[in-house]
Nucleic acid binder design. Structure first.
Lengths: 343, 343
DNA sequence: CTAGAGTACGAAAGCGCTTTCGCAAGCGCT
DNA sequence: AGCGCTTGCGAAAGCGCTTTCGTACTCTAG
């Protein structure tokens, strides 16, 4: 920790500009009550000297806290690191720090992380990733966040609608529907689903979309194999093994995110089942590597980086009383992992 | 920003425990000069009340700053996000914040980021990613960091030996050699290199390893195509196009990182050149998706997550006078993207 | 020419913590 | 009993900023 006295302080700038500490502070933080002329002089001096305010002192004195806490399900999952990229971009523009926390898709752990962030007095909390269907924990989390907001904290969530905060929301149901429609149009009927971590609303929403498309074609999701494992590559592997073992006639697998799709593809490759000739595979999210898998993955694209950017921008804007919702677009990206159902 | 007065302060804890503010502070931060009995009482009360110190006040008052700045070349590159994962893990254990900055592989921008972190008074700075061969900027960066360290700041670098700080160092040269040896053993002679961003020491080191292996087999790297583009997937694409255009007889491509290898594979796939039958491809790093590409990628594994962990652990340990170096192991991982040279 | 309002700035009071300093009590020693 | 030591604790001085409050000065109105 740099020793005191060693760094430029606001007094130094003030002195050099021939004004008081108070005036210098006002000038630099854009408060009014300072003549344009003086304000200009202070800013110039500060620039020349390379002054940067001590964020700890600033926050302690009651200024806005300059750190934003970002809670994600899994830091090294590309879905979340792309979101983080967007958040960091905006934060850098605004001179904000970003503190990233990992919740491991455990609602209790997530709540702990949020409580910790609040105790740390971060000014903004961003929560990325699916909500939980366990309404008890979810309600507790929501209560915690409400208290935080009523104290002036700012919150935005990404891909979650249950926390009573501003939200950036992809339409998971429509995405799921698009995926299923695509497969149905290709003539697939023996469709299986590799579903993600149980207890996540993303899973239920995407599944609902799939079910609705199926119904439109006279099929019932309840009669098709839906294997719940985990939203990871490993989860995809396990699901694929089970699907192929129990339902060898399957011609298409819907993985509810790209990580799982990668696991599914790995299993098919290992079993030398050709994709898409014998089995078609689709994912969800369009993480950047999806295009590089072989075969390249048909999936629903979510604009992750932009979602991160939007979420922070939303949290930064003065809050109205009602939570705002920013729907995000999604597009079906058809690549080489899907093809006509085999005869 | 939570309003003042709304949160538990240390005085509250002190009062409740029947001791002075000073004693409470000492008890909680483990300073001595407090009897075990009193310290215990304070800790218990603090626990009961759910007290969490205000990090801004703590830092301002001269305690250790609890944030670590992590500078990476590119936030959403899996190589760096895996390193970040390791750093965040250790940071969470220690109750530290992690602030991630993006340098975009530009040494000047990187220096600016570092200066900003220093001005922000972070207590620890971690720098991940290759050094720059431009010794001027590198020296300037080093000087800045030395000043910071002499003021008590802590620094550790990952994959870089030029900054006079504690370092976690993969052996890029040996890795490059292993890759080339592997291809040579398979009978390849017409080898091309898709080299990364010019001006990075990682590029020169890995190349040096390749050159040394080639020499051992009577070949000269200077006579083989080495295309310098950029350490990204797109860079790999461009390099591959050029290599295939100018040297159609090439039987093996060494990409100097996995991202580039992905670009190379994409081009080969587009041109329907089968891998590894006609052309073998190798990468470097073993990012987690390397195993899922098709064909899965032969590469040199670096333990990224562990490197991140080690770097922070190193920075946390009391500093000796000489910079410490932690070499990291690497292993050649042979997968399906390499095979015998075609006759 | 003075009263009242408005504007530009400085002095000083915190924000919540750590740390220095000083005092009081307890100890063994001469 | 008196001395110096050590030990355990409290009072108070900051850390570098923001903000409230007050003062001096200008300007318009009466």
């Amino acid at each position: 920790m740099p020793k005191p006295g060693s760094r430029l302080r606001l007094v130094d700038v003030a002195e050099r500009a021939g004004v008081s500490l108070a005036t210098a502070s006002r000038a630099l933080s854009g408060r009014d009550g300072v003549s344009e002329e003086v304000a200009d002089r202070v800013r110039r001096v500060s620039q020349e000297l390379g002054y940067v305010a001590n964020p700890y002192a600033r926050t302690l004195a009651g200024g806005a806290s300059s750190t934003v806490g970002l809670v994600v399900h899994q830091v090294d999952d590309p879905y979340f690191s792309e979101i983080a990229g967007g958040v960091i971009e905006v934060a850098a523009e605004q001179g904000l720090l970003v503190q990233i926390c990992h919740s491991g898709r455990d609602p209790h752990f997530e709540l702990r992380q949020i409580r910790h962030l609040i105790a740390q007095r971060v000014g903004i909390i961003l929560i990325a990733g699916s909500g939980y269907t366990d309404t008890r924990v979810e309600a507790e989390t929501k209560a915690e966040l409400s208290a935080y907001q009523s104290l002036g904290g700012r919150v935005a969530v990404i891909g979650r609608h249950s926390l009573g905060a501003d939200a950036v929301l992809p339409d998971n149901e429509a995405g799921g529907r698009a995926l299923a429609e695509h497969l149905l149009a290709l003539g697939h009927r023996r469709i299986a689903v590799a579903a993600g971590t149980p207890g996540l609303t993303t899973v239920t929403d995407r599944l609902a979309g799939v079910a609705s498309a199926l119904r439109g074609h006279g099929l019932d999701l309840a009669e098709l194999p839906v294997v719940h494992t985990d939203f990871t590559r490993e989860g995809g592997r396990v699901a694929a093994e089970r699907i192929l073992g129990d339902h060898p006639g399957t011609t298409a697998v819907i993985a509810l995110n790209d990580a799982m799709a990668m696991g599914v593809l790995a299993v098919l490759r290992a079993r030398r089942i050709s994709v898409p000739e014998r089995v078609s595979v689709v994912g969800f999210d369009d993480v950047s590597v999806a295009a590089d898998l072989a075969p390249s993955l048909t999936t629903v694209r979510l604009p992750m980086t932009e979602m991160g950017r939007t979420a922070l921008a939303l949290a930064l804007k003065p809050r109205s009383n009602r939570p705002r919702r920013r729907p995000t677009g999604h597009t079906l990206v058809v690549r080489d992992s899907t093809g006509p159902a085999p005869a």
